[in-house]
């Protein structure tokens, strides 16, 4: 089954990339942007078919490699097929 791991910089950690995207959007005329944060989305296709175990697997992988929990937070989602 597929899982999606979303990795974002933690709140309070400066996100210069998100800020630059915000500036560019402002230049394009998109007004009223309070904040833009940029992160990563990682899709994984697992042999596992049990949703709870798949989620646990995703969290283990995120903690070990996909996210650096010093600066990043993550979320594991199981998209409905």
């Amino acid at each position: 089954m597929k899982i999606v791991v979303t990795v974002m910089l933690k709140d309070g950690v400066l996100d210069p990339q998100g800020r630059a995207i915000g500036h560019a959007l402002g230049n394009l005329g998109f007004a009223g942007l309070n904040e833009v944060r940029a992160g990563k989305v990682i899709e994984l296709d697992l042999a596992e078919t049990d949703p709870a175990r798949a989620r646990q697997f995703g969290e283990d992988m995120a903690r070990k490699l996909l996210a650096n929990t010093v600066i990043e937070s993550f979320r594991v989602d199981l998209p409905t097929p």
């Binding site: 910089l9 950690v13 400066l14 210069p16 990339q17 630059a20 650096n68 010093v70 600066i71």
Partner: peptide, 17 residues
């Protein structure tokens, strides 16, 4: 070394990108 947590902290993108 920071990614391996042998040293504390992390190195982020340069502030001015």
């Amino acid at each position: 070394l920071t990614e391996a947590q042998i040293l504390p902290g992390a190195l982020l993108r340069n502030a001015a990108l």
